[in-house]
Design a protein around this nucleic acid. Sequence first.
DNA 1: AAGGGGGCCAACCGCTCTTTA
DNA 2: GTAAAGAGCGGTTGGCCCCCT
Length: 337
Amino acid sequence: MMMRNPNNTTTRDKNKPNHACGGSNNKPKLRKGLWSPDEDERLIRYMLTNGQGCWSDIARNAGLLRCGKSCRLRWINYLRPDLKRGSFSPQEEDLIIHLHSILGNRWSQIATRLPGRTDNEIKNFWNSTLKKRFKNNNNTSSGSSPNNSNSNSLDPRDQHVDIGGKSNPMMDGYHHHDDTMIMRNTMRTDPSSFNFAPMVSGVGLNNLDPLISVPDHNQYQQMGNTGNVFTGLGDYGNAIIDPISKGASVENEWFLTPSVNGNAIACTTSNNLNVEVLDPCFINSKTMCHSESFKVGNMFSMENASWETENPKTGDWDLDGLIDNNSSFPFLDFQVD
DNA sequence: AAGGGGGCCAACCGCTCTTTA
DNA sequence: GTAAAGAGCGGTTGGCCCCCT
């Protein structure tokens, strides 16, 4: 572990006012910079004895000349006994990439799903390693790579969906990650002429889905036994339902299901031949699933057309519910009038 | 061997959100 | 209802270390 000299004060420390950690003339000057072993020991001893409370009180009661904020950071990112040390495992890397594709730079939310890892650690890992890796992939990959991007973005979500290396006009889509514009075409398949495998991959299962980008997690992938559609549950819970196996028997019977990756997926039958799967991506999944005002017709009208959502904010989602519920989705039936 | 550049990562900043009085 | 304080978050900085030349 690289350590700076705890006695050092950075230029930034010297030149900038300390808004966050006091700095009042009446109070003893608070220490900044690296923590000394003695400070660590004081904080550990206090936390183990008294537990977490008001951080300002902790700093004071532990006899530390630190602001509460600094104590909190030190404890959470370094001293906590349940922290995992060492480099990230490939599984953790996969999970970080996957979660980042869903959550973006919400490091704290990503960290809650990697026990023993801190948001700071993950953020640093992403910025120093994974981001660079994506950049290199973009520079060197060509054609059929799932990570191949038509944009210059480093963000794995900015990926053109290219099924099997060939652009499929029925399944083409593009994701833009910046919360302002997401579009993806409706998909319509005719089972008499369509090869389902790429569809399954392209819709929401794993590595061909620009929102997923996690290879080798297809173990739950199933083909629908109707031969018409598919039923799938990705390793991380991204679900796709087979409307026919769910009992759809009439034309235009719709089913909605929230996907863990934030996509609310709608399935329907049309003459029991075509299957519509809509992946509105960044549209508020709560609205889709729960709002009475939501009209399936709105989705239907988007068929074969890209669209812009008004203001799709990832923060609107019940991501906790979606992501945590990996194994049993509350499939929500949705009946068209 | 020296030194310069780049990577890593601890820790800070500034902001927003939440809680409390 | 509102202001202040506390907590938490993401972005950023910069010191230390390693590696390459």
